[in-house]
Design a protein around this nucleic acid. Structure first.
Lengths: 207, 207
DNA sequence: TAAGTAGGTAAATAATATTTACTGATTGCT
DNA sequence: AGCAATCAGTAAATATTATTTACCTACTTA
């Protein structure tokens, strides 16, 4: 379903080996991000938390941000695996979009670090757009666009709205609705949010 | 219209005097952000660009981020003044929302630094949510919610969608649609984007 | 068995942010 | 008029943090 060759290539390349030190560093970053801002973390803290020396971080990663991108990549891989499962057996573009909305909200709601990284921490650096994590994001985006186009083609979705705008509306709405979760740790009710957002985007706000 | 007492208080407090050095620092930050990322700027660069010494920056601002927040505040003040004008003489909640959508897109489209700061640079720090800039954002948000509630009350807007979600959909969609403008400097056609987004949000994507 | 390489360390260095102690000019006050 | 305060600003020291360097050990493999 989602598993275009490209995707699995990236996803397998890492899983193979990875020395313990590298994993410890990624885990340390993830742990620290639980209640701290990326900017506020120091290399020394990360090293201490991981139980390695600072130098080792530079052996495996270009810089502090590079570690962040690897954490995001791991999260995004899990996310895509889950989405792939969630989508199985679902027919119709609108039904697929509905499920994707639910799954995305569920992800942000239950994986706050993931939400914070992608909504708040990476998009402000140029390196991100060169990273493998971003390659996964683009891949996912292409799949969404395909679903939207399918919906337009078969008459489920209005044909006078460019698919890129529809995608922006879907993800913009989801992300904005989860922003307070990411920033202030407010809770999000997945089912309610998914229901309201789907209803809103499918039928509009006008009476 | 927008000019609740609170707003004007903040907006006037700054305008009064402000020593030349302080203004030069804010302008330097704005200039540098034109083609550089906030993180990549150094205090020394900012000082050189402003034509002042590094020490002076700390005389007027708590730290580097504090300068950023002041730049945003200035931009946001202008934005609110413009929105206030744009809204004059417009009746009906949907008409007002439509105009706000247009004005917001126009702002992001023609003020890329503003878009970058608010979409990419500030939301990842705790200090931001303590800043005067954020106070303006909250104020604006409250006004939007009021308009939405007005629309629900008078039957223009469906009553089964919580107003907070409607606001999130509006701003989420706008922001996502301007993200590539902010990040990659892609151009945005204000009129087209406003038309599509309004149509999409008002009537939904379903055929 | 020796050459390379992978995983790792400790300490030096470089880059940046922030603080401190200090001017000279202006302003309000009796 | 004279004189504290305060304001705008500087220069240099210091603190913090990121990054580089040189090295060590164990393990493969040819």
């Amino acid at each position: 379903m989602l598993s275009k060759k490209y995707l699995t290539d990236i996803m397998e390349s890492q899983t193979v080996s990875s020395p313990p030190g590298k994993l410890k560093i990624i885990n340390a970053m993830r742990t620290l991000l639980d209640d701290r801002t990326f900017e506020s973390l120091t290399i020394s803290e990360i090293a201490v938390t991981a139980g390695v020396t600072e130098g080792l971080i530079y052996k495996y990663f270009r810089d502090k941000r590079d570690v962040l991108h690897h954490v995001l990549r791991e999260h995004y891989e899990q996310f895509l695996v889950q989405i792939d499962r969630d989508l199985q057996g679902i027919d119709g573009a609108l039904n697929k979009l509905k499920k994707i909305i639910w799954s995305s909200i569920e992800r942000y709601a239950n994986h706050r670090v993931f939400a914070r990284i992608i909504l708040l921490e990476v998009r402000n650096s140029e390196e991100y757009f060169q990273s493998e994590a971003y390659a996964l994001v683009r891949q996912f985006n292409r799949i969404i666009i395909d679903i939207i186009n399918e919906g337009i083609a078969n008459g489920e979705i209005r044909e006078n709205l460019p698919s890129a705008y529809i995608r922006n509306a879907i993800f913009g709405t989801i992300e904005h609705s989860c922003l307070n979760r990411a920033i202030f740790n407010e809770s999000v009710s997945t089912n309610e949010a998914a229901k309201v957002i789907t209803e809103l985007l499918f039928n509009g706000i006008k009476r």
